Amino acid sequence: MVDSSVIPIPLPGSTDLVLLLLAAFRSQSIASPIIFASCAFAGSVIGGYTTWAAGKKGGEAALDRLGKGRFVRRVQGWVKRNGMLSVALASLLPPPVPLMPFLLAAGALGLSRGRYLISYCIARAVRYGAVAWLGYKYGRQVINFWQEDLKGWSTPILVAYISLLVLGALYGIWNYRRGNKKGK
């Protein structure tokens, strides 16, 4: 849910990684990956809808909070011209493509709830279905490779990943507080 909401996550793609690992470890039957993909889909739809609703309620002022840079202008222009397509593509593409600005812009620029939900739900169902299938089909092989061929590197890679996650979270908190102080 958090991955698709306005709350920034320091490491994008965390949901995909967790879904891949769960599908790989619990892949005794096809039902497990389907359940995991359904849970990821449901959480993503709830989080994405809150982002769209925040944009709808905040209007273009919500977009101004994202900044005035070239990226924000390009997102706004793309969403104005290609409403449903922009939401669908941003929802399908893996990180580092940012999802939140597109969802916020879709709400702020008047994409209707029905059109938003259709494009977002179809794209997220395809994405999480594909991720779960990949985890189910190839996850064990990747885990075996990790355990056998990268045995000496497992701990440093995990420490680096967790360190980046913590540093990203701290940076996000610091940046949020700095922004609030400037606004006062």
Rank of each mutant, 00 (worst) to 15 (best):
A53V: 09
A40L: 00
S119Y: 01
C121Q: 03
S4A: 12
P33K: 06
A53S: 11
L111M: 13
A54E: 08
Y138I: 10
F145C: 09
L63D: 01
V75G: 02
R115K: 15
P95Q: 06
Q141E: 13
I157K: 01
N144H: 13
G183K: 08
G13I: 10
A160P: 02
W133F: 14
L22A: 14
S27T: 05
L109T: 13
A125Y: 00
S38L: 12
G172F: 04
N180I: 06
S4E: 01
S5I: 07
G43H: 02
E60M: 10
I34V: 14
F71Q: 07
F25T: 14
I122H: 00
L150S: 05
S112M: 07
I7D: 00
A88V: 03
K68I: 11
R115A: 15
L93I: 13
A40H: 01
Y116I: 03
I118W: 08
N180M: 13
D64P: 02
R127G: 04
V18W: 11
I173N: 02
A61E: 14
S112F: 03
G107M: 06
T15H: 07
S32I: 03
R81T: 09
V2R: 09
K151A: 15
N144I: 15
A90E: 04
S29T: 15
I173P: 02
I118M: 12
K57I: 11
V18D: 07
V72H: 01
V79H: 02
A160H: 03
P96Q: 12
A53K: 13
Y128K: 02
L17N: 04
L167C: 14
R74W: 10
N180Q: 12
S86L: 06
Y49N: 02
K68A: 11
A130N: 04
P156T: 01
L170A: 14
S44M: 00
Y171I: 12
Y161E: 08
C121S: 15
L99S: 11
A169V: 13
G55F: 02
T51V: 09
I35P: 00
I162K: 02
L150H: 04
V159S: 01
R177H: 12
G179I: 05
G55A: 09
P33M: 08
L89Y: 02
W52M: 06
L117I: 07
F25L: 15
P10M: 03
V126E: 00
R81Y: 07
A40Q: 00
P101V: 15
K151M: 13
A31R: 12
G172M: 04
A31S: 12
G77D: 11
F71G: 05
K181N: 08
P33L: 09
W52F: 14
K137F: 05
W78R: 05
V79S: 02
F25C: 14
Y176L: 11
W78I: 10
F145Q: 08
R115W: 06
V2Y: 03
K181I: 09
P94L: 08
G58M: 07
R81S: 10
G135A: 05
I35C: 06
P95H: 03
G43D: 01
W146T: 07
R124I: 00
R127N: 02
P10G: 15
S32G: 09
I9T: 10
F36Y: 13
A62M: 09
K57D: 10
Y171V: 11
V45P: 01
G168N: 03
C121K: 00
G183F: 06
E60Q: 11
I46C: 05
R113N: 14
G13P: 05
S32C: 06
G179Q: 10
